[in-house]
Amino acid sequence: MHGIVSVIVVSIIITDFLLLSAGWLKSAIRIVAVQGLALGLLPLFVHQDGLSFRLTAIAILVIMLKGIVFPRLLMRSLREMNTVRTITYYVGPMASLLVGIAVLSSSLWWGYVLPLPDQTGYRLAIPMVFFTIVTGLFLIVSRRQALMQIIGYLALENGVYTFGVFFAQSESMLIEIGILLDVFVGVYIMGVMVFHISREFDNIEAGQLSTLKDWFQNRKELAGKDPES
């Protein structure tokens, strides 16, 4: 069991690096799907007290949602827009990888320093969780397209979810379904918004969304429309 969990943890770290270096929107969607599959399997092996119906049901639900439904939703949004399919960056893939290495080493360092009682015995778990969360946040701010921001959000959510699998004992299946339902609706609405963005601007660059500003820009804009002039 311990071996399998380690394999899953390492594979999630690898998918984070792949996400950071991905150049095509399609491959980024596939990578985040693989990550979703991997963490869907996690609860089956982490809890030593054997498989219960509840664990299996949750695992199946997570795998369906993160491994199949989300990628399909995102692929559909991608198909519906006839624009560039490559990822555009504020921070390029090489620099992103370097950032990734720096983040992973610092997470490793304070994963060991942090006084977490090591009840699970998986020393890589905490670094992996924080690396995945920071990767998600970094993808959101360093990629130009709205679709990549959704993928970043998914990676962030995956990181938070794995923390829950390792360290928070769940109280009820109802609650976990509630969380998954929220995430599902969230990704669905974001997908719809991306579709609207691509229709409105003919591409999905979130950088285009910069009309709403304060202060000087608006001052001039508003000042330019004096009714008496």
Binding site: A146, H196, I197, T211
Partner: peptide, 16 residues
């Protein structure tokens, strides 16, 4: 497009 921008910011920032 302005309300689209506002909604996207709201959705993304609050979800994160």
């Amino acid at each position: 497009h302005r309300s689209l921008e506002a909604t996207w910011k709201y959705l993304l920032i609050c979800s994160v």
